[in-house]
Design a protein around this nucleic acid. Sequence first.
DNA 1: ACCCAGGGTCGTC
DNA 2: GACGACCCTGGG
Length: 287
Amino acid sequence: MEQEFILDNCKSFEPEHIFDCGQCFRWNKEPDGSYTGVFNHNVINVKKENNKIIFKGICNGNIQDECNKYFDLDRDYEKIKNKLSKVDNNLKNSIEYGNGIRLLNQDLWETLISFIISANNNIPRIKGIIERLAKNYGDKIVWNGKEFYSFPTPEQLSKASVSDLRKLGLGFRDVRVYETTKIINNNKNKLQELTDEKDVYKLREKLLKFPGVGPKVADCIMLFSCLKRLEVFPIDVWVRRVMNELYIKSDDETKVNKKEIEALAKEKYGNLAGIAQQYLFYWRRGA
DNA sequence: ACCCAGGGTCGTC
DNA sequence: GACGACCCTGGG
């Protein structure tokens, strides 16, 4: 049953910025400029018309509740941007460039697997791999005569052998996804334990125990899933690059110490470092 | 044809 | 702690 939800006068909501800033992998642009994606067993199309955001699609629950949560609609991004813009002109410029970014509250399990796949990989290929996982192991959802597939549950993904995963193009990440899936399936409380952990350092330690989860991936999971730790600052090649160009100015960016970047981010952006990271990442990749 | 890079992690030294 | 290897795809 199709549902619709219209959001009026929403500031800080630009579909292109939200879906293209690297936090998610399952949203695709339609010919009319809107985006269609799958999350939490929902298929939703998001279209911006003037000052309205129109959400439309097949929804497992109430579409307004689902979108409120997923798109982080209760958070005041105007306030956040005002605060961060005062840090310095570099950040101010990047915020103007990606002014419609919001950080999604994505499913923890999906985010865990997706970012294990992201390691030493590029975004088009990551998207392709995740799409094939969904098509092979998820549930089919039909909308407007088109087929979509939900991200497989831990149980559904447990049907995949290491060589199955290799055939879907995961490369050396096959074992990591396989082993992590096994851990989750062997302890049904595992995901809830992560959700319940209050201390960000302990949470990080727990995430680092999963095969394929290192510091960068752990931070992405904490920032882009419903764990939503805005204070973490994932450092990848792009963030290292932009931080070096703006502040550190080393001749060889690959030699720049991660600890130095982390300390700088904490000092400048404080407990909003994660959001600042997204503006900087999006700006540096796109500009 | 060849090399390089991509939202890194892991094992080894 | 540093270093190379790792699957695969697209682009120069």
